[in-house]
Design a binder for these strands. Structure first.
Lengths: 196, 196
DNA sequence: TATTAAACGGAACGTTGTTCCGCTTTCAGT
DNA sequence: ACTGAAAGCGGAACAACGTTCCGTTTAATA
C-alpha cells in the first residue's frame, strides 16, 4: 500500500473526517522534520511525539514506513520523473540529457540523509520504498537510455532497472566521508556506459 | 578490537584456558553455519543457541559483531589480499590483473549472504567491519590501480578507497533478482575507469 | 585435594516495531 | 441543538533484539 491518502484514486474521493485530515498533514510535516535530523529510519515514537499524536495514528495513516517516506518525498520524486522528458527535449544530446537527469536523481538521494541506505535495507517496511521509487523512475530512465542508444551514444544492453539500482547503491554512504563521493563513481559508471 | 584471539599478536601469546579455546572454535563454526542460513546479521541468540553457549560467552570472545564476522571470514579476506600481487605478476596486463582481482572480490561479497549489505550498514557493531576489510584490501587495490595507471591503461585520479567502496555498494542486493547483477555494473564501472 | 581466578550462563534492562482495544470526537440525521 | 453510530485516537502491552552484569561453575595450579 503506497497511496493511503487516496488522492489519485479515480473513485469519488471518500472524504475523511476533518481531524483525520488534519492529523495526516501534521504527520507529514513532523516526519519531514524528523527525517532531516534523524534520518528516514528514525523511531516511530519520535515522529509521533513530534507530531503530538499516538503511535496508532501513524500506523492508521501510514501502515508501513515506506508509505510515510513516499508521502513525504512524493513531490520530489514526481518532479524528478517529469524532468526526464523535459531534459530530453532541451539538452544537446540524449546522453547529455541522461547525465543531467542522473545528476538530479543523485542529488535527490544524497541530500536525504539515509534515504539511499533505507531503500536497499531489508529491514521491515522499507521494501515497498524500493518498489515505489523504481516503478516511478525506471520508465523515465528507460526512455532516456533508449534515446541515447538510438543515437548511438551508448552501447546497448544496459537495462534501466539495473542502472537505477546501481546508482542508488552507489549513493549509500555514512556521514560525509571526503574519501567517498557518490557523484564521482556515478560519473564513472556513465562513462562506462558510453560507447568508446 | 578485531583480533580477539590474539593469534597474530607479537607478544608471547598468553594461553587461554582450554574450555575458552574450545568455545571460541565452536563459536566460529556455529557462526559460519548461521551466517549461511540467516545472513551475517543473524540474532546473537541464534548463534549462541547453535553453539550451545550463553550470550555472555559470545560477547567475551567477540566484543562486537564485526569481530565475529571478521574472524569467520579472515581466511578468505587474506586469500583475496594475497591474490593481488600474484595476479599482477601473472596477468597479461595490469588492467587485466585488476579486473581479475575485482572479480575475486565481487565473488567473495556476493556469495556471502548479506555481507555487502552489512558492511555498509550503520547498525551498531558493523562499522568496524567496514574498517577492517578496507584496511586490508585497499592497499592491494591501490597497488593494482597504480600499476594500471603507470601502464597508461586507465585514467588517473581514481582512488582505491573510493573504488572499493563503490564495488562493495554495487554488490548490495536482496534475494536473487535476475534483473540486478552486480557483476554487470562492476564491469561497467571498470569500463569507465579504462582510458578511452 | 584445596584454592583461586578465569570463564560461563542467562536473567534483566533498554530500545524499537507492531498490535489491540477502550475512550473520544466528528458529523449526519433529526 | 441534540444524539448516536462510526470513525478516529492514544498509549498500554507484547515481541524481538542488543547488551550488560553477576552469581555459579570449572580449569589450572599448588
Amino acid at each position: 500500500m503506497v497511496n493511503p491518502a487516496g488522492t489519485s484514486g479515480k473513485g469519488p474521493a471518500r472524504s475523511k473526517r476533518a481531524d483525520a485530515q488534519r492529523n495526516q498533514q501534521t504527520l507529514l510535516t513532523a516526519a519531514a522534520a524528523v527525517f532531516v535530523t534523524s534520518g528516514v529510519d528514525a523511531p516511530i515514537r519520535e515522529i509521533a511525539a513530534r507530531a503530538g499524536v499516538g503511535m496508532g495514528t501513524i500506523y492508521r495513516h501510514f501502515p508501513t514506513r515506506a508509505d510515510l517516506v513516499v508521502a513525504v518525498y512524493r513531490h520530489q520524486v514526481e518532479a524528478c520523473a517529469e524532468a526526464g522528458p523535459t531534459l530530453l527535449a532541451d539538452a544537446a544530446s540524449p546522453l547529455a540529457a541522461l547525465a543531467q537527469w542522473v545528476d538530479l536523481f543523485v542529488d535527490f538521494l544524497v541530500t536525504k540523509h539515509g534515504l539511499a541506505n533505507a531503500m536497499q535495507s531489508d529491514t521491515s517496511g522499507f521494501d515497498a520504498l524500493h518498489t515505489y521509487f523504481l516503478d516511478r523512475l525506471v520508465p523515465v530512465c528507460a526512455q532516456l537510455l533508449d534515446a541515447a542508444t538510438d543515437a548511438g551514444e551508448i552501447r546497448p544492453g544496459t537495462r534501466a532497472y539495473e542502472l537505477m539500482r546501481g546508482i542508488g547503491n552507489l549513493c549509500i554512504s555514512h556521514g560525509s566521508d571526503p574519501r567517498y563521493d557518490p557523484r564521482r563513481l556515478v560519473e564513472l559508471l556513465l562513462a562506462g556506459l558510453a560507447r568508446n
